[in-house]
Design a protein around this nucleic acid. Structure first.
Lengths: 357, 357
DNA sequence: GTGAAAGCGCTAACAA
DNA sequence: TTGTTAGCGCTTTCAC
């Protein structure tokens, strides 16, 4: 009854709505709690603010009143005044590549741990501009761009507008914006060494999207190490990071004479497509006739039907670095613009002939 | 200069901050735009509100001024007053099962189309209570619960608190809350018919989590149709919707004499684990020695290494129904509490012996 | 440690 | 159609 009375008398302005049955249940506000607890609204605010200076007794009375009223602070109102939403946006191009769901899950959990929330967007290039603008409207505290195809310029604009941006698995082509990526070049080198070291002499490469730094760096490392080991030429085809694209790439690679004896594929998702095409369409055995090596260490790479040898991207450390940088920038407001490069390592399974487990 | 003057004179309260270089770039507000355009703040608001009554000339002047200032409406402030955040929360237990990333992607795109945004949470039971409370604090307009293990009671509480909830791929055990799910029972029946109709006589079932409606309904339909076709008994084991759990289940099923000649698995992710275990660990051929039938039609089911015959869940229609119900509830405030059941169908591939493509 | 007052940026009556 | 006014629910000086 105390609460009911409080509610009715609540409106202070001129045309009070006295009960206002129109809109349905109204929210319980900090003012309601304050009245029931017999303290000021500020006291309620302080009671719910971790490091604030409130007497233990006051805090208890507030919590008690809040409990009875079923009060929950309104994060939106708080955001409006503190200018911190505790929301981080993540833009991801597509979730078809199984490496990304894992990243999303990790990121979500990592952010939840710090009291942040994840606003998820899926987009390929086209609608991206409009999207980022929307993000800004939501006062997100930071943005993680996973989408390989979004323009760096866009990212820079956000950064300039005061919203920290971290590029994930992708290098900035403009300065100012931070990024976290694997040591893709070294990954390519490792792949080359693994193949050449086991006697392969006609390697091929299946690229992702040609305009992405990941695909380019992986290939650059591969090419470079191949050359160092005396192999100056290799066949190549682009799979554009799509499953069917990779299947087509595999067909092209093996269409003409002197087929490759090994294929390095820019990610596991495509590598699996390549393996399937080799085995079930082209009648080739992996690894007996052709070796295949992937990139990511996606869950599927470990499945018995593939047992794909691959370059592992350290998802955990990558996510950790991303969140750390983001939170740091949020706290300091410092533009920083750092580039983190996470080490990769070879995971040996059964898709490369002659490589010991 | 007009804008600069506007900025400096902006603070209306007593202790004006005159320039305030402390905090860094301040946001451009609708008031700034109003001043530059020489109109009232309301006019700016109207110009940015789709159906509002503004003269075309006014709108243009506002947009012009907004453009020069780089103004973007503050969605948070709008939410505070309209009480509509245009944010929908989605709680998903884990993204390991490849069916779910597809759902997340579809849902995200579908919501974006209607100007809504997706706040993503990952959680298994434990932290769920705390989670939902947080959601409420963010004034989300609706919640989609995909997590199979979250309690229905929790969902009901949200619903009661005025936030529309739709259970996805999961039936409510309490009334009041809406749900969208496949016709799981019929799916089970179809699986039974497919198996028995092709001469299988020793079927088995690999369950998901025993306490989920999906797994139970799929099994109930399977059992029921088996019985109708004269098969009263079948072996069963629980895989708990995990890959390794399914592998263990497969081992158990085939450990003792008179092994099954067919396995119906509660989802594709587990079905793939079962196939791999059968083929690569137990030395059995699929479908020659054992037939396998799954549920979902996840992308991986179509991969050449599996060619899994499965019961398709119509992801598109399910998402469509979910969003439609949610938006309807958001608009009407109607509790509705409907139960949508989406039809399933058999997708024939090569994992069931004797079933024609 | 606590309360009063001001105001975050916006929209929604109401009056003109 | 437009401007004026009063808040949405919260945090934050400032004074005590």
């Amino acid at each position: 009854m105390a609460s009911a009375g409080g509610r009715a008398a609540k409106r202070t302005g001129g045309r009070a709505v006295e009960g206002a049955p129109g809109r349905g249940r109204e929210a319980v506000t900090s003012l309601d709690v304050a009245r029931l607890a017999g303290v000021s609204q500020s006291a309620v605010s302080r009671a719910f603010t971790p490091g604030a200076s409130v007497a233990e007794a006051t805090r208890e009375r507030v919590f008690d009143a809040a409990g009875r009223l079923g009060y929950r602070p309104n994060a939106i109102a708080r955001t409006l005044i503190t200018r911190r939403s505790r929301i981080v946006a993540m833009v991801v191009s597509y979730l078809e590549n199984p490496f990304y769901p894992a990243i999303v899950e990790l990121m979500s959990q990592r952010l939840q741990r710090d009291g942040y929330h994840l606003l998820l967007f899926t987009s390929d290039t086209e609608a991206a501009d409009a999207l980022l603008l929307q993000l800004m409207q939501y006062q997100v505290d930071g943005i993680v761009l996973v989408s390989a195809t979004l323009s760096s310029a866009l990212a820079r604009d956000c950064q300039r507008a005061g919203v920290p941006v971290v590029l994930f698995n992708r290098i900035a082509t403009v300065g100012e914006v931070s990024s976290v990526a694997s040591d893709n070049r070294e990954g390519g080198r490792i792949a080359a060494r693994a193949l050449v070291g086991t006697g392969h002499r006609r390697p091929a490469f299946v690229a992702g999207l040609e305009n992405t730094s990941t695909s380019r760096d992986r290939e650059a490392g591969f090419r470079e190490e191949l050359a160092r080991l005396g192999i100056r030429r290799y066949r190549r085809a682009a799979g554009n990071y799509s499953f069917d694209g990779a299947r087509r790439a595999a067909r092209r690679l093996f269409a003409s004479g002197a087929p490759p004896d090994a294929v390095f594929v820019a990610n596991d998702h495509m590598a699996i497509a390549v393996m399937d095409t080799l085995r079930h369409e082209l009648g080739l055995r992996v690894p007996e006739d052709v070796s295949v090596i992937g990139f990511d260490d996606a869950p599927q790479a470990a499945w018995d039907s593939y047992r794909l040898t691959t370059i592992e991207q350290a998802a955990g450390p990558m996510v950790e670095a991303t969140v750390a940088m983001l939170l740091e920038q949020i706290a300091d407001g410092a533009p920083a613009a750092r580039r983190v490069e996470v080490p990769v390592r070879l995971v040996v399974r059964d898709s490369v002939r002659g490589l010991a487990g």
